[in-house]
Design a protein around this nucleic acid. Structure first.
Length: 272
DNA sequence: ATCCAGGCAGATG
DNA sequence: CATCTGCATGGA
């Protein structure tokens, strides 16, 4: 077990964990969280301008939290957009994580037409029922473990009509994942993802952004659509097209600022 | 009670 | 190509 630190100016634990890119974390105290990824975990605590990370796999979580990525430059870039200024200042400590592709695929199939609280509950129950028991927590189920699940069992965990999607996709996903590991372009990536049951345009964008490190992807869910919608941009697809071009190479990070701000602002009724 | 949540599949213009 | 409908579940 090792502990290492990182400055908190561009690493806001709470914003990073609660902005909907991952679903396996828990708050254990003020400014203190535990994050789970595949079969690993990491404890995070913010104290006096620094984030303290404690884990048995430092290398994994340095990569996972992408600690070498220059978020100061990203913030500088996007705070210059007038419509983004408030959202960026509010969420400038958000980082986009380098998550497991497989876990991201399963998680975001479950995310469809669902809310974050319930997604977390479902994924936790999946881990407990199918995942390997570690010391005092459960790993995310491997694809083999998940392939053993029946549709009825999955429904019993609250997956609803997504049970069938998970059931079918676990059967086809290994081949798709190995294709995705190859060096292919975005269009092909997207096409492979869309061929999996339960993955449509929005979920594909999330998987590309969070699981495949396509930082230009701009997922449009109901929150983003409400935030970006205008008389001309009156469909999710038009919003996606317009803003992924407007925000460019790191549009997905801008998207996270907007998403987090929209959700947070509606919770607290406006400021900060 | 109706609406909504990080939408998708399938059917129909 | 675009648009429409039905859909599991639980909290507000």
């Amino acid at each position: 077990m090792t502990t290492f630190t990182y400055p908190s100016e561009y690493f806001d634990i709470e914003a990073t964990l609660t902005c909907g890119q991952l679903f396996r974390y828990e708050k254990i105290a003020e400014k203190e969280y535990v994050v789970y990824s595949m079969d690993k975990r990491c404890r995070l605590r913010e104290d006096n301008g620094a984030v303290l990370l404690t884990t048995e796999d430092e290398e994994y979580f340095r990569n996972y939290f992408d600690l070498a990525f220059p978020y100061d430059e990203i913030v500088k870039r996007y705070v210059a957009f007038p419509e983004l200024e408030k959202a960026v200042k509010h969420g400038k400590g958000i980082r986009i994580l380098r998550q497991s592709l497989y876990e991201t695929v399963i998680s975001f199939i479950i995310s469809a037409n669902n809310n974050i609280k319930r997604i977390q509950g479902i994924i936790n129950r999946l881990c407990v029922k199918y995942g390997t028991k570690m010391d005092d927590y459960y790993a995310f189920p491997t694809i083999k473990q998940l392939q053993a699940a029946t549709v009825e069992e999955l429904k019993a965990l609250g997956l609803g009509y997504r049970a069938q999607y998970i059931y079918e996709t676990t059967k086809t996903l290994e081949a798709a994942l190995s294709e995705l590991q190859e060096n292919i372009d975005e269009e092909k990536e997207r096409k492979i993802l869309l061929s999996q049951k339960g993955i449509g345009p929005k979920v594909a964008d999330c998987i590309m952004l969070f699981g495949l490190r396509r930082l230009n992807a701009y997922p449009v869910d109901t929150w983003i659509f409400k935030a970006n919608q205008t008389a001309e941009l009156n469909t999710p697809q038009k919003v996606r097209e317009y803003y992924s071009r407007r925000y460019g190479e790191y549009a997905g990070i801008a998207q996270q600022y907007i998403f987090h701000y929209a959700r947070n602002a509606s919770k607290n009724g406006g400021e900060e």
